[in-house]
Structure formats: C-alpha cells, structure tokens
Design a binder for these strands. Structure first.
Lengths: 133, 133
DNA sequence: ATACAACTTAAAGTTGACTTGAGGTCAAGG
DNA sequence: CCTTGACCTCAAGTCAACTTTAAGTTGTAT
C-alpha cells in the first residue's frame, strides 16, 4: 500500500489529478490512514494505462469503460473485443498521420499543400476523422 | 471564391467553427460580400490540414504557428518528425495493448488480471510509458 | 505536548475548443 | 417593394479535464 505522494513520485501526476481520478471513479483507493488515501501499488500500472489511453486520443470516459468499475480490469469478453477494435481503428488513423507527417517532413515540394501525396493524406484524414466511430 | 456554406459542405465543419477559426487567426477571409465572408477555395485544404494536425495531437495554437505569416503552410520539418516519432511510439504502445486485449478476450484465465500474458502487457506498457520520449 | 508538513475537503476557477442564443443585416426572388 | 433565409455579431454557455483556493485535520518529529 502506498500513499498519494508515492503515487505522485512514481507517475509524475499532480496529487489533485489523482484525487480527481478517484472522484470520477477512474481509480480506487481501498481505504484511508487517518484522512489520507492509501492505494494499492497496482494503481501505478492503472495510471500508466490511463496515460496511454489519453495519448492515443481516448477520453477519460472511454478509458473508464475499458476498466469497468473499481480497478477490476475488463470482464466482458465481447466488450474487450470491441475495445480492441476501437484501438485498432485508432492505430490505423495514427499510422496514416505518422506516414503523412514523415512524408511532409521529407517532401521537396515548396508547399506541402501542392504535393499530391500530401493532398491525398489530407483527404484520407478527412474521411477517417468524419467516420462514425 | 466560396462562401461559408460551401466551406461547411466541403469540410463538414460547423459554420460557427469556421468563424471561430477566422476569429483566432487560424484561417483568413480576404473579404466580404455584404456582411458575408468569402473565402479562397484553398481554405478547404487549410482546414483539412488543421484537422490533420488536431488528430496528430497538436493544439490549435501549435497549428497556427505552423502557418507562417505569409499564410502559406510552412511547416517546421523537425517538428513534424518529432511528432511523427511520438505518434510512432503511441502506435507501438497501442498495438501492444490491442494484442493484450485480444489475448484477454480469448484467454481461458478466469480473470484477466491473473493471466500472465496480460500482466506482462501491463508491465511492458509501464516500461514504455516511463521511458524518455 | 505541540508544531508543522502533508495531507484532506468542497467549491470555484481555468483553459481549449467550440456551440448557442438573441437580435441584426442584407441580397435575391416573387 | 417586401419578405425571407442565409448570413452576421457579440456575449454567454458548455464540456472535459484539471488546478487553485481556503479552511480544516492528521501523523510524526522534536
């Protein structure tokens, strides 16, 4: 069991953020020492996953649906598959972006907007970002 | 020259968004027809580029810095590469996560938390997300 | 035993990125 | 000429994700 300052140290998050996450049910503190929250040390892994999800463009709400309530990770196998598909979709988007960005970084065209390949990327991106996800 | 409804049609953005982008200087309307804004048709590509940047994790502020004073999309190639690398890192993490989820969906362990492979995923992810990026 | 640093709460404030609402203007069609 | 609908403005509202503030409560060290 660790306290909030330990969580701060090991995740780099602000204490207020950790409290906020507990408040919205994203993580769970199994008890108190006096007033002070205590956490299981696996909260570190949970917070890392939350960070990962955020970086990948998922909202806290979506993330909390991945960890159905109270730290019990992901029970429903069909939901798990759905979630994997969502992530897969996100991977495809990010891959298109990365390729486009790398191309843009190397493209000799004076303006990226004039480069046919960059234009194609923009179109693809629009399709991807207006799709129902 | 096109009007705002044409921009709406061709980008899928809300008119209010387009006005907002003009207000913060992200795009430019070269004039009016009466009260009504008119746009050069290349604003469509600019807006696509903005969307791309957003999906790639840039803020509107960062995006507006990519459009140099001349209005031409002058993109800092090193920034693009940096961002591509960040995205690449995310793709790797997400791929690991997706694979972990798919495994979990098929894993016979009664709880995913007890599945050794899933536990390994969590550890791998933790390592990745604390690496210097 | 007391000081105090480190925690706590609840509520309000902030930021980014928009959206909504109320009321105004204008060009085009009947 | 007059209506109409698509545009306009400006201010305020919203939402997510936090942060800040003010006031209160410990556990621990001196």
């Amino acid at each position: 069991m660790i306290d909030i300052s330990e969580v701060v140290k090991r995740t780099g998050l602000a204490a207020s953020t950790i409290r906020y996450y507990e408040q919205i049910g994203l993580i769970h503190s199994p008890g108190r020492h006096g007033l002070k929250r205590i956490f299981k040390s696996n909260v570190i892994e949970q917070l890392d996953l939350i960070k990962l999800g955020q970086n990948a463009g998922f909202s806290l709400d979506e993330i909390s649906q991945m960890f159905s309530n109270s730290g019990q990770a992901m029970i429903d196998r069909n939901k798990l598959k759905d979630q994997a598909n969502k992530i897969d979709e996100q991977i495809r988007k990010l891959t298109a972006m990365r390729d486009g960005l790398l191309h843009a970084a190397n493209c000799p065209a004076s303006s990226h907007l004039e480069c046919p390949r960059f234009q194609k990327l923009l179109r693809v991106n629009r399709r991807l970002s207006t799709e129902s996800t």
